[in-house]
Design a protein around this nucleic acid. Structure first.
Lengths: 120, 120
DNA sequence: GGATTTGTTCTACTTTTATCGAACAAACGA
DNA sequence: TCGTTTGTTCGATAAAAGTAGAACAAATCC
């Protein structure tokens, strides 16, 4: 399980758990990363998803998102490109990401993304 | 905000956040409470949702579920009856609970509810 | 009134998370 | 090769969360 790909370990589809995904998405920065990635047509590097926070802090968040199965990271040259594992997530937990991203109704972006996300 | 009802404070629909819900659902016991409630046609008291764990521990979990907006508690005599705030959740985050409960696809119950949930 | 049931609150303890500077590693480019 | 860029790992610290016994409160029954 958890095959290594491009230097990063990503959990296999069968081992991805709802709990881990919920924990991953329960942090404001991580949720913001996911939403930003979802809105992007192409993978994004870590720096562009760091929102001005320290690299070490964000690296921690990327690791949790990766370990939960939510995102995939691949090294391309000097930068590490991130993307949502959307197809896998849709297979494993149909409707979940759509609900998270507010693709069904209209409410989703209201609360969390309207928040300032001030450093602390 | 957060009007008191039957002795318990429940957040109003507008103040319910996705992050808080995710945090609430990131604990195995809390997820189990939610699934058990969803499977029940009628509200259930805390004891029946405690899975043999200490009352004080479970009371803590009920509080978090309540504060996140996931469930509603009402005193009926000596016992406190819990139910999912399903209609509100469906309005606020369409598709979310359906995905959590696996009502769309077939995968959901695989990981978490197959887990033994041994005390520690 | 006194005992019972149901669940909360208090308090203490332990574990897990989050944060972030500093050192490190890999991939380029000049 | 040296310096730059990008991101990880290490280590320390602080904040948050989970656990559970004990005392407490409210409703109910005798």
């Amino acid at each position: 399980m958890a095959r290594v790909e491009c230097g990063y370990a990503h959990p296999d589809e069968e081992t991805v758990s709802l709990e881990a995904i919920f924990h991953a998405l329960s942090d404001p920065y991580r949720l913001r990363i996911v939403r930003t990635l979802a809105a992007s047509a192409v993978p994004m590097n870590c720096g562009d998803l760091s929102f001005g926070r320290p690299k070490s802090s964000m690296s921690h968040h990327f690791r949790i998102l990766r370990a939960s199965g939510v995102l995939h990271t691949a090294s391309h040259g000097v930068e590490h490109m991130n993307s949502l594992r959307r197809e896998m997530l849709d297979r494993r937990f149909p409707g979940l990401m759509a609900a998270v991203l507010g693709e069904i109704g209209h409410a989703t972006t209201t609360e969390a993304s309207a928040r300032p996300l001030t450093p602390a």
